[in-house]
Design a protein around this nucleic acid. Sequence first.
DNA 1: CGTGATCTTGAGGGAATTCAATGTCGGTGG
DNA 2: CCACCGACATTGAATTCCCTCAAGATCACG
Lengths: 225, 225
Amino acid sequence: MSMQALDITVPFARNHRNQFPALLPVPVPAPGWFGPMAVSHSFVRNEEVYGEGEPAEYLYTIQTGCVRTSKILTDGRRQIGAFYLPGDVFGLEADDVRSFSAEALTATTVHVVKRTALFLRTATANQLLKLTVEELNRTQGRVLLLIKSAQERVAGFLLEMANRCHTSDDIELPMSRQDIADYLGLTIETVSRTLTHLESVGAISLPTSRHIVFSNRAALARLNA
Amino acid sequence: MSMQALDITVPFARNHRNQFPALLPVPVPAPGWFGPMAVSHSFVRNEEVYGEGEPAEYLYTIQTGCVRTSKILTDGRRQIGAFYLPGDVFGLEADDVRSFSAEALTATTVHVVKRTALFLRTATANQLLKLTVEELNRTQGRVLLLIKSAQERVAGFLLEMANRCHTSDDIELPMSRQDIADYLGLTIETVSRTLTHLESVGAISLPTSRHIVFSNRAALARLNA
DNA sequence: CGTGATCTTGAGGGAATTCAATGTCGGTGG
DNA sequence: CCACCGACATTGAATTCCCTCAAGATCACG
């Protein structure tokens, strides 16, 4: 492989493996890192820790037991966000509002700390965290896609791309059918057939294979369930 | 702090035609939050930005174009990590090493900054970011599960749970079959059948419905693909 | 010992994949 | 400019896998 030289200032030396230190080199305090602000709380089996839509004021770290986060989709299906075991932290949200509810699977004790008690001093820290939480959200959105049918996946993918492109009624896809298939966990044939089907029902039209026109966005949103 | 200026070689790969990327006239810098440390760089269509397994030294923010991250699974299938559009940041890793490779889908310009140049002052900031990146990693692992077959999903789920419980050869599941099904995007019947099947092939045994014994962990790992 | 919740098992159907062939587009050279 | 070629995309037929619907089995608990 060939190299191209750039002039960059380096604040740190490489370590012994000739690698730069990790992004997060600070040693990790044990699960009790919440420190003296933390308050203990217990939940019985099936008890709700918080509900979807409530204000997201607290972070939780599990001492004993197990918690699941979940949400009910519009079609009645239930999606599990994650399972949390002792040592895990949950309750981080990008928004001020809970996007999932949380329930204790077994008798559970947690430590609780107010989110606002954790201050980040630098704009960089806030920005990095914000970016990471956003990517986490996008990934969770993808999980939401992957538990659905092929038609819902493709419709959801198109809507997501349109959203991120800030375009309203048509998009020029930069990726191949194979890329889309690998992204959605489908085969290229299924993606192609599904797009054809979406066109045949009038939800989209396909002037060229990568140019998607949203003829009926409402229909598309409906197919996304 | 004194910064030492070094001439660093940057492993931007040649493109598929074995040429260095053209130095395109970069449009508006519109310097994102990366600030003055950011360096501009361009990639042509299909050019690799970085490869899986390489040291993760840089963060990227897209100015124009589109990038996809991907990895090849052991069975030859390819998984897309994400698509990144102008404004998006990519290259954040929990580890020192790239878990995906990144390729430009179209002609793309990015701003690059060394991640070590982004200093987080407090342990809290580091800790929060670390937790979020870990959750992001877990979620990406889940995406990896969801693009596979039912058998691979269940096997992968069991291995993940065992891993997170720090137990070697058996686990007591705290969640119901319905919880597992909703987590894996399967039906409760498929989960049950798959567990029965795993038992019949000797990979696990089921003393009780929630007590899983790993009779043959190697077989289980193989089924996970 | 019943009763409801949870889990397993079975049969049939539907959705997505696989395998195969055809069609379309962009680039390259004659 | 057109013909050709390879990459990409669409379409078709058969199969596989998972879901749906239904019934039975097991477990927890009063």
